[in-house]
């Protein structure tokens, strides 16, 4: 029982059901990932979980639509750049605590008395940055795996 050649053919075949379901499902997966990310400070979820849900939406597009078609939507260079930018933003948000005199990843919001920006906004910011970082990083790993050589 040789699995390799049937595997290659199975990877390239695309049925109507798979095509339609993946097209309808992927935007909702991305939206649910964004929801988990944004409400992570109040409900179960958070940056890592939301990022992985977003990445699984992107991976569904990669697997079902083919790498070439999905790479028009999420190009390799853009994902790589977004991942680096999110990492630098996380480091910057950590250094903001040092600049405020609290320590690394301290909350600088406690120093300013503004009613417009709630103090928990720092957690939301960190969750968003971690989610973008994890989502682009995991989908970058899988894009690199799925691309032929």
């Amino acid at each position: 029982m040789d699995r390799t050649d049937t595997g290659r053919a199975g990877m390239n075949r695309k049925t109507t059901i798979l095509d339609l379901i993946s097209r309808k499902l992927a935007p909702f997966m991305l939206l649910f990932g964004l929801y988990v990310l944004t409400y992570g400070h109040a409900s179960p979820g958070g940056g890592f979980q939301g990022g992985v849900v977003i990445a699984s939406g992107v991976i569904l597009l990669f697997v079902a639509q083919g790498v070439e078609a999905a790479e028009r939507l999420f190009p390799f260079a853009t994902l790589s750049r977004v991942e680096t930018m999110a990492f630098l933003a996380f480091i910057g948000a950590g250094l903001a605590g040092i600049a405020a005199g609290i320590g690394f990843l301290g909350n600088p919001m406690v120093l300013v008395e503004v009613s417009a920006a709630p103090r928990a906004g720092m957690v939301l910011l960190l969750n968003l940055v971690i989610g973008i970082e994890v989502g682009s990083g995991v989908s970058l790993i899988c894009l690199r795996l799925f691309r032929e050589e």
Binding site: V36, P44, G45, F48, Q49, V52, V53, A55, S56, I59, V138, C142
Partner: peptide, 11 residues
């Protein structure tokens, strides 16, 4: 559970 569903079952 959310992490397990996303990482273990998905990716």
């Amino acid at each position: 559970a959310l992490t397990e569903a996303a990482v273990g079952t998905g990716v």
